[in-house]
Simulated assay, not measured.
Amino acid sequence: MTQNVNQTLPELPQPEAPLSVVLAGGGSAGHVSPLLAIAAAILLRVPEAAIKAVGTRDGLETTLVPAAGHELVFIDRIPLPRKPSLDLAKLPWRMRRAVATAKKILQDARADVLVGVGGYVCTPMYLAAKSLRVPIVIHEANTKAGLANKVGARYTTYVGTAFAATAIRHAHVVGMPMRRAIAALDRVQAQSGARERLGLEVGRPTLIVTGGSLGALRLNRAVADSVEALAAAGIQTLHITGKGKAVMRADGSLLTAALYRQVEYVDGMEDVYAAADLLLCRSGAGTVSEVAAVGLPAVFVPLPIGNGEQARNAADLVQAGAALLQPDAGLDGPWIQDNVIPLCLDESRLTRMAGSAAQLGIRDAAERMADMVLAAAEMPNQ
């Protein structure tokens, strides 16, 4: 009697990953970029590790995390109101619901460790991890620690910070996790190729201006008022205006000038850092950390909102002589002519600034965070 070879075979259990890591955080590039850098460093240590990211449905993580090849799941944003309001009255109910969702995420992932980088999703994830006894690892990118990470730091001793000035429990300075293309950048070796890719002359003094992906109106206006003076000094300028922020003339035409090129966005900041002799930019934590890591002189114009964290981010580099700092309200065409143009032409000063920046830069922050993850999960270092 023959057997039916078409019988359905029982489904075999899938082998578990040697390490399951859930990473939480999102909203801005300042959270998503270090999250992805940590994930990449973990996979270098443990290639078979299972990685799952947790974010919100309206943050940059919705595009950046899948593009990096990682699974992304969502949790409701839970703002933590600091003043009496309707949102504060709703907070306990919202938090209970979010913590329940967070527990299910951790349980479904069979998480060995939770890594949080800050943002609205982290508070319920930290509370859920504590309840389930899942080890917690935290990275705080700013000099003023966020409220969510302050909550999480109560439940772990594995807390990495980008800056020594950050006040948070159990802080260990590890630097800012960043993409390998930036962390390993040799500016001198990469400069010629980077300038060619960006449409710049190889041998000319080069100023690059960026206000980040969203642009900065103050920087854009000040540079627009300076293009003729920059060109007269022999300086070429690449102006990254921000998406949708092209700089126009009064007649509605695109601003053009000798030795001046504007683009809305550059995909790959490593080319920007390699091509520039001097960077004029905001002083977000990521930018400050990357500038230091690659040894690039900078003029920082802190964003004039919040509690002054952008100025604090830049303080160490400014004090070391690696950067200048100019308040937003004081940045205009004449200031650029009096300060940026002479600096951009002073090769010896730029060399000294680059060296001072590099002495403060940390290139292996992602690897340091990966080591924390393995330690928290009680895995041998790979």
Rank of each mutant, 00 (worst) to 15 (best):
A258M: 08
G27N: 00
A224I: 15
A250E: 07
I235G: 00
R180Q: 15
Y158P: 03
R110V: 11
P47C: 10
N149S: 01
F300H: 11
Q7G: 14
A50I: 02
L127N: 09
D108F: 08
V188H: 11
A323R: 05
V227D: 10
H139Q: 09
G152M: 00
Q382P: 14
E270C: 11
A109P: 09
A224Y: 06
R204F: 05
P177A: 04
A68H: 09
I235S: 01
L127K: 03
G252S: 08
H70P: 02
P302R: 01
V272M: 09
R57G: 06
P334T: 15
A275E: 10
A29K: 05
V54C: 11
A37T: 06
A222P: 06
M95T: 14
R249H: 09
E347Q: 14
G284C: 09
Q189T: 12
H172A: 10
A67E: 12
G308Y: 07
R97A: 14
A171H: 01
S283Y: 13
A162K: 06
M95D: 10
M248R: 12
A39P: 01
E228R: 15
E196V: 13
T287Y: 00
R221S: 12
A322L: 12
L296N: 04
F300I: 06
T2P: 14
A311S: 13
R363S: 07
N142G: 00
I38H: 06
T2D: 05
Q236I: 11
I78P: 03
R187Q: 02
A129C: 14
A68Q: 11
Q107D: 06
R96C: 15
A53G: 13
V73W: 07
V373C: 01
V73C: 08
V32A: 06
L35F: 02
V159E: 00
A89N: 05
Q107H: 12
T166V: 09
L217G: 07
G242I: 05
R154S: 14
V263N: 12
A358G: 12
A246K: 07
V46L: 13
R363V: 09
